[in-house]
Amino acid sequence: MVLQRDIGLVGCGEITRTQHGPFLLGPANDTGLRLVATADPRQGLGTGLRHYPDHCAMLDGEPALAAVSIASPTGTHFGVARDALLAGRHVLLEKPPTTTLAELEELAAIATKQGRVLVTSYHARHNEAVERLRERLAGRLPPRRIAIEWREDFHRWHAGQTWPWRAGGLGVFDPGINALSILCHVLPGLPFHVQRARFRVPPGAETPAFVDMRLTWQGGDGQAVFEWRRGGEDVWDISIDSVDQDGRTEALLLRGVRTLLVDGAAVVTGGEDAEYAGVYRAFHDALERNESSISTQEMRLVEDATAAAEVERTMDAI
Rank of each mutant, 00 (worst) to 15 (best):
28 A>M: 07
182 I>S: 11
184 C>L: 09
98 T>G: 11
311 V>H: 00
250 E>R: 13
244 D>G: 05
183 L>D: 02
188 P>W: 07
143 P>E: 08
270 G>V: 10
111 A>L: 12
156 R>L: 09
18 T>R: 15
176 G>T: 05
92 L>Y: 14
285 D>N: 06
186 V>E: 00
106 E>F: 00
256 G>I: 00
315 M>W: 02
201 V>T: 11
103 E>H: 13
312 E>Q: 05
226 F>R: 04
68 V>R: 07
32 G>I: 14
201 V>P: 05
173 F>G: 05
178 N>Q: 13
226 F>V: 05
219 G>P: 10
245 Q>R: 15
165 W>T: 06
118 L>M: 01
311 V>S: 01
31 T>C: 07
67 A>L: 03
282 A>Y: 04
226 F>Q: 02
9 L>E: 09
40 D>R: 10
176 G>I: 06
227 E>G: 06
27 P>A: 08
187 L>E: 11
159 A>G: 12
137 L>I: 01
288 E>T: 13
84 A>G: 02
255 R>N: 11
209 A>Y: 08
277 A>G: 12
220 G>K: 10
115 G>P: 02
34 R>I: 14
308 A>S: 11
144 R>E: 15
19 Q>V: 03
273 D>Y: 15
171 G>E: 07
10 V>H: 07
89 R>I: 00
169 G>R: 03
104 L>W: 02
185 H>K: 07
311 V>R: 01
194 V>W: 09
136 R>Y: 00
258 R>L: 01
268 V>H: 04
98 T>A: 15
284 H>Q: 15
124 A>E: 12
247 G>L: 04
219 G>D: 09
141 L>H: 04
187 L>F: 10
61 G>D: 08
102 A>P: 03
179 A>D: 09
2 V>Q: 12
159 A>T: 09
191 P>A: 13
11 G>T: 09
280 Y>M: 08
225 V>R: 13
4 Q>C: 11
158 H>W: 11
273 D>T: 09
227 E>D: 15
289 R>E: 15
145 R>F: 12
263 D>G: 01
274 A>Q: 10
84 A>R: 01
42 R>Y: 15
135 E>G: 08
78 F>T: 06
274 A>E: 10
119 V>A: 13
278 G>P: 08
193 H>I: 05
